[in-house]
Design a protein around this nucleic acid. Structure first.
Length: 917
RNA sequence: GCUCGGAUGGUGGAAUGGUAGACACGCAAGACUUAAAAUCUUGUAGCCAUUGAGGCUGUGCGGGUUCAAGUCCCGCUCCGAGUACCA
């Protein structure tokens, strides 16, 4: 019987479905383990070979943990809301739900062919009302919560209202958009509407007037992580800054917890560092300057030590102080400047490195010297960071320096011996000069000293600033979760939780209305039964993916997002596998979302993803043919230099090991039907290059084709064999034959001349050694996600056992179990062929025995002064004097010693002997 | 600019400070075959030798620590990823 992978894989995939082999329940008799993949967005293009890489790795780990007796939760679902389906709907009029459903079906077919051990009974889809009910529910809870900075915890807004009516804002430290101060009497005297306006300033989900990234082509706002280089990540359209009233999530309130939480999780350093930068904690001080007309002017600085070097002040063009500080004489110039910068898109603002700005006409007084400092307005100061205003220290900040040089403003050096003739001195080192009471101190001493003095004189206060902004949560799109919000007299109110889910309505077109409202404006009767209009925006992509890992724990629960019982059992994700591209998006939002749920008592673990592994990207490997210019003749790679040629992408699916299938190429495109070829050694050899995997480069490799040709087990092994999991690498089908050959070799250990041929009885010493070497190596490798070397270990073992003509049942049985996480179908087949009735995942992971690995003798490299010279075999129990004697009496030793006697002899047991002369 | 990775044969890549190049691809030679494919065997870092002979040089570059460095330390070069008027 041959290794018929098609039949085997079909049989076992059916078996696993029929027997619900991978369904899990909360079995308290076993330890739990939660392995999660980042769920995919089901795109129309289907999966290419890059997508399953992470899924294969997590599947191997899941199966391994199952064999070790863990109760493994390994679910899969779909991140089904998103822009591409909606764009497609706009073009074709097809309902996004239909295309999404089709895409999901296609994804599922492709995934099923690879033999994953997902528990599909727990599948979730973010566009399913039974699922997004809980996304809406969390939003309602965020609306009714505020963040208490003292307790570092979300609290109900009702508590805040009570505090306001009792004591006003006195003694409260609650996260807010704008600092506010009022007394209990003032609060109680306010109207309901005024009180609601004030509460918006504190809610965790709030409506805020914010500068947003507006993308006109997409007709929607985008979050910071959805924009790169001033272009939208989806589609690459220009993005401009616009002030709009939008739903926001107060992610910034959780900044410190998000930062602290990184200490206790097992993620790569680079990913943690990316998040730290994104959160951007900086310690400094807010210092209050006073302007000529008594208007306070607060700035944030991390370099309070440079206060004596301030020569001017700068405001962001969007700052509210601009209007107050502009004098009559400067009015025209300032208005002109504001208009010009306002028109610039984000992209232009980044691209334009030239210095620009305008003088406001006002002066601020230096808090220590009282000296007047001109107040300028420039777009190099950002409205959204700190206070939107800075004190400019041109000698020690490169941006201030460029500005001062351009407008010819004074520059005062503050550090002994620094050279500021060409550029500013930004380093935080040196001895202070020209700085009053700070003179003679080092920079490191001067920073706290300056802040202390500022606080003592009541000129300002110590402040920790974060770069992390609140997340803009509204999208002017159709295909997303509707907000559970209606407007009563223009005031936003949440729906009752019992009315959830609020289902997405039908619309005639997926475009904005004629009046410019979002697509939901087209829905008929989009209002509550009492007639209050419902919110027209929908939620962004990250809404549905922020708590999906919790829903998998209890996916059918209609009473709660997750039951306390299920949450207490599964707790958090032990292993999360996915790409780095979510470092500042999903992985920040879901950590925030989880922390909020922890505050509500819904989730029990502060961090949702204990360990995270980033699989690398699989790039495409394109093939080229070379057409001689102006002809339909193609010349093979190594002969092309003799001609003038144009490289043309050839479909990688008609090229094998860089050799072109000429007939297939002629049939590929009518244009090439009559093509002629100049061959080398009778073959046409293609050139190649590493590029992104995409249709236009004809380098997309479909996993279905690989499964059809080689089988799922070969695909799984080969994807792992390609290189280290976390490294980006090109897909190169060359070499897959080797992995396939290995599986056939394993098969041939069991089957001789077409029939099963295994023998009972005691395995030989060599057989045991080979097997136990494998068990040890593979166990270690899986724990360390070093799957590529595991595959090598399998190949070595198969080669050794083949050489030993091993057909011993005991050996083959354990080998099969080791192989089962990697190649589950063939392992299952062989396991049953050995006469087992239970599935291979119930077999239990074999333990290795060091006893079998011990050698009778060991080879030892003999070095002289570190240079390896010859190898000697020693008995396992050789003593030091015996080794020394053997080494020195070896005929070559005299040659290397050159008549001298050795200074010392270093013996590393079982590895090396070094003779130092 | 800053942060984090990385650099090893023709290729993908192995190597707890201890015989560098495992394993695989590719290539070459051989066996089987009318032939091809498939399969199997052998060889395969470079250089100089040799045919019972071994030696030298080698992990991006330059130093250092060590009996011993691809691995650790210092200084560069190049490549990749992320991030950026963040005060």
């Amino acid at each position: 019987m041959d290794y018929n992978f098609r039949e085997i894989e079909k049989r076992w995939q059916k078996f696993w479905i029929d027997h619900q082999t991978y369904k899990v329940t909360e079995d308290r008799s076993k330890p739990k383990f939660y392995v999660l993949d980042m769920f995919p967005y089901p795109s129309g293009a289907g999966l290419h070979v890059g997508h399953p890489l992470g899924y294969i790795a997590s599947d191997i780990f899941s199966r391994y943990k199952r064999s070790q007796g863990f109760n493994v939760l390994h679910p899969m679902g779909y991140d089904a809301y998103g822009l591409p389906a909606e764009q497609y709907a706009i073009q074709t009029g097809q309902h996004p739900a239909v295309t999404t459903e089709n895409n999901i079906r296609r994804y599922r077919e492709q995934l099923d062919k690879i033999g994953f051990s997902f528990d599909w009974s727990r599948e979730v889809r973010t566009c399913d009302p039974a699922y997004y009910k809980w996304t809406q529910w969390a939003f309602i809870r965020m609306f009714h919560s505020c963040y208490c900075n003292q307790a570092q915890q979300a609290r109900p807004v009702t508590e805040l209202v009570e505090a306001f009516s009792r004591q006003g804002t006195a003694g409260l430290d609650v996260a807010c958009s704008e600092p506010m101060e009022f007394t209990a009497e003032e609060w109680n005297a306010k109207s309901e509407r005024e009180q609601q306006e004030i509460l918006m300033n504190y809610r965790i989900a709030y409506l805020g007037d914010t500068v947003v990234n507006w993308c006109a082509q997409l007709g929607t706002v985008l979050a910071n992580d959805e924009v790169s280089d001033g272009l939208s990540i989806r589609g690459g359209h220009p993005v401009e800054q616009k002030k709009m009233r939008q739903w926001c999530l107060r992610v910034s309130a959780y900044a410190q917890r998000l930062l602290d939480g990184l200490e206790n999780i097992d993620w790569t350093d680079s990913l943690k560092e990316t998040q730290r930068n994104w959160i951007g904690r900086s310690e400094g001080a807010v210092i209050r300057f006073t302007t000529s007309r008594g208007i306070p002017f607060d700035i944030f600085t991390t370099r309070a030590d440079t206060i004596f070097g301030v020569t001017f002040m700068v405001l962001a063009p969007e700052s509210e102080l601009v209007q107050q500080l502009t004098t009559a004489e400067q009015r025209a110039a300032v208005d002109d400047y504001i208009e010009k910068t306002g028109k610039k898109t984000e992209r232009e603002r980044i691209a334009d490195k030239s210095v620009s700005g305008v003088f406001s006409g006002s002066y601020a007084a230096h808090p220590f010297t009282g000296e007047p400092l001109p107040v300028w307005i420039s777009d190099y100061v950002l409205a959204g960071y700190g206070t939107g205003a800075i004190m400019a220290v041109p000698a020690h900040d490169s941006r201030d320096y460029a500005f001062a040089r351009h407008f010819d403003l004074p520059v005062i050096p503050l550090i002994e011996g620094c050279n500021i003739s060409e550029e500013s001195f930004d380093a935080k080192e040196g001895i202070m000069i020209n700085s009053g009471f700070l003179n003679g101190m080092t920079v490191k001493e001067a920073i706290p000293a300056a802040i202390n003095e500022v606080e003592k004189r009541r000129l300002g206060y110590r402040k920790v600033n974060f770069r992390l902004r609140d997340a803009i949560f509204s999208r002017q799109r159709y295909w997303g979760e509707p907000f559970p919000v209606c407007y009563r007299d223009g005031m936003p109110c949440t729906l009752d939780e019992s009315d959830l889910p609020l289902e997405l309505p039908e619309v005639d077109k997926y475009l904005p209305t004629e009046t410019g409202e979002p697509p939901l404006g087209r829905a008929a009767n989009w209002q509550t039964p009492e007639g209050c209009p419902l919110e027209l925006n929908t939620m962004p992509g990250f809404a549905g993916s922020s708590a999906y890992y919790l829903r998998y724990m209890d996916p059918q629960n209609s009473k709660a997002l997750v039951s306390e019982d299920a949450d207490n059992y599964w707790r958090s994700v032990d292993l999360y596998v996915g790409g780095t591209e979510h470092a500042t998006g999903h992985l920040v939002y879901s950590r925030f979302w989880n922390k909020f749920l922890v505050d509500l008592g819904v989730s029990c673990e502060e961090e949702p993803f204990k360990k995270l592994v980033n699989q690398g990207m699989i790039q495409g490997r394109s093939n080229f043919v070379y057409r001689i210019k102006g002809t339909n003749r193609f010349v093979s790679l190594h002969l092309k230099d003799a001609y003038e040629v144009t490289p043309i992408h050839a479909d990688v699916n008609i090229v094998h090991n860089d050799i072109l299938d000429i007939d297939a190429f002629r049939n590929w495109n009518p244009e090439y039907r009559t093509a002629e070829f100049i061959l080398e050694d009778g073959r046409y050899i293609c050139g190649w290059a590493i590029e992104k995997m995409s249709k236009s480069m004809y380098n997309v490799v479909n996993p279905d084709d690989i499964v059809e040709k080689y089988g799922a087990d070969t695909l799984r092994l080969y994807e792992m064999f390609l290189g280290p999991l976390e490294q980006s690498k090109p897909w190169d089908t060359n070499g897959i034959d080797g992995v396939h050959r290995f599986l056939r070799k394993v098969w041939n250990l069991f089957y001789k001349e077409g029939r099963l041929s295994v023998t009972d009885g005691e395995p030989s010493k060599d057989e045991l050694k080979s097997l136990h070497k494998l068990i040890k190596k593979v166990s270690f490798d899986i724990e360390h996600f070093s799957f590529n070397t595991s595959v090598s270990a399998f190949m070595i073992c198969a080669n050794e056992l083949t050489a030993l003509k091993c057909s011993r049942r005991a050996i083959l049985s354990d080998l099969t179990v080791c192989l089962s996480p990697f190649a589950p179908h063939v392992a299952e087949e062989l396991w049953h062929a050995l006469g087992n009735t239970a599935t291979v995942c119930d077999a239990g992971w074999p333990a290795w025995n060091e006893e079998y690995l011990r050698e009778d003798t060991f080879p030892c490299a003999i070095s002289f002064n570190g240079k390896s010279r010859f190898v000697l075999e020693f008995p396992a129990d050789a003593t030091r004097p015996e080794i020394e004697k053997a080494v020195l009496s070896h005929p070559s030793s005299q040659k290397w010693l050159g008549g001298k006697s050795p200074k010392k002899i270093i013996i590393v047991p079982k590895k090396i002997v070094n003779v130092v002369i």
